[in-house]
């Protein structure tokens, strides 16, 4: 019994030291990480809408976690970006869906994912660009072959949720 208690105590000590160290480093770095993430996300907004300069973000509750209104230099509304996060067998995946004022998908971007980078690269370069220009009022064409992958299925879900939100709320 004493032996078991000793083992448990040693593991507890190791756990406490580990947790403490992670907490300390987190305290030192979380602001930098947050700033980096914001910068990265704004960079991705500019990739979706090339002329976008001003971004007004609204945090939402539900399947779509953020809505961003994108304006150009003259403050003309260019469109909306919807952010959705899903958890699949590869972990978390965050997708940004841009819809312009002409009711077309401007661009779809994978903001972050835990999947193998090479797989993501293939999905990005071969399949995601096919969404560009598709009308949100008609049936969206998804690639049937790629649809079998978890990553692509999650992207599909976020696109569908974004379109549903856009059509129901009209970007409001």
């Amino acid at each position: 019994m004493l032996g078991k208690l000793k083992k448990a105590f040693v593991l507890l000590i190791i756990g406490v030291i580990s947790g403490g160290s992670i907490y300390l480093v987190n305290e030192l770095t979380w602001e930098l990480i947050r700033d980096n993430q914001i910068k990265l996300e704004e960079k991705q907004y500019s990739v979706i809408f090339e002329d976008g300069v001003n971004f007004e973000a609204t945090v939402l509750e539900g399947d779509i976690s953020k809505k961003v209104e994108v304006y150009d230099e003259s403050l003309n509304l260019l469109g909306y970006i919807f952010k959705g996060t899903r958890v699949n067998n590869y972990g978390r995946i965050t997708v940004l869906v841009g819809i312009n004022v002409d009711n077309e998908i401007e661009q779809v971007v994978i903001a972050s994912t835990n999947n193998t980078p090479n797989n993501v690269q293939i999905i990005k370069s071969k399949y995601i660009m096919n969404f560009d220009g598709q009308s949100v009022n008609s049936e969206i064409n998804y690639d049937a072959k790629t649809g079998a992958s978890y990553t692509y299925a999650s992207i599909q879900e976020v696109i569908e949720d974004s379109i549903t939100y856009y059509l129901n709320e009209g970007g409001e």
Binding site: I17, N26, G91, N115
Partner: peptide, 23 residues
């Protein structure tokens, strides 16, 4: 523990490397 620490530091000081190395 050390891997978590290293990941936080990479995210804070070398974000591009963190994105490139990913999982």
């Amino acid at each position: 523990t050390f891997v978590t620490i290293v990941q936080m530091l990479t995210n804070a000081f070398a974000l591009d490397l963190s994105i490139a190395l990913g999982v």
